[in-house]
Amino acid sequence: MSQRAIDWWVGIFVLLGIAALAVLALRVGNLSGFAYGNGYVLHADFNNVGSLKDRSPVKLGGVTIGEVTHIGMNPQTFRAEVTMRIEPSIKLPIDTGASIYTQGLLGEQYVAIQPGGMPQNLKPGATITLTQGAVNIDQLIGQMVFDKASGSSSGSSTH
């Protein structure tokens, strides 16, 4: 094996490694999430964010238009503050609402945007006030069981 052939092979080997790392970063990891880097920021306060996390999608009509960049707690109101980055071409009216839904039964949670009808648009950095937090399935089941129990007992007492 000549030294020149070895140089070539090692060069190809290193390039393969770099290319594989790039593909892993872009296709498998979510480095491509920087697509929203030039998007504008919106805030929304929720009473419960469930298992929403950084980089969770923000969707409008099922189409991803942005991502969650930060989740914090407002110490005055005790509500969760979600910061999102939205694609710059999507201008949302000021009476837009935001809810946290789950994809499927066991899927991940995302922020769903319901656009309003007002002519003015939300400015970058504005806060969405019409919000609905994540639905807690445990709580729902508990409520249902409790309602059923109290419903049947009150029913029997009236008879």
Binding site: L21, L24, A25, R27, V28, G29, N30, L31, S32, G33, R55, S56, P57, E108
Partner: peptide, 19 residues
């Protein structure tokens, strides 16, 4: 397949730590 992978794999946490 790809979307779930992308939302759960991080560059520094998973890929670079593996390396």
């Amino acid at each position: 397949f790809w979307a779930q992978m992308q939302s759960n794999v991080t560059l520094s946490g998973d890929i670079l730590n593996g390396l």
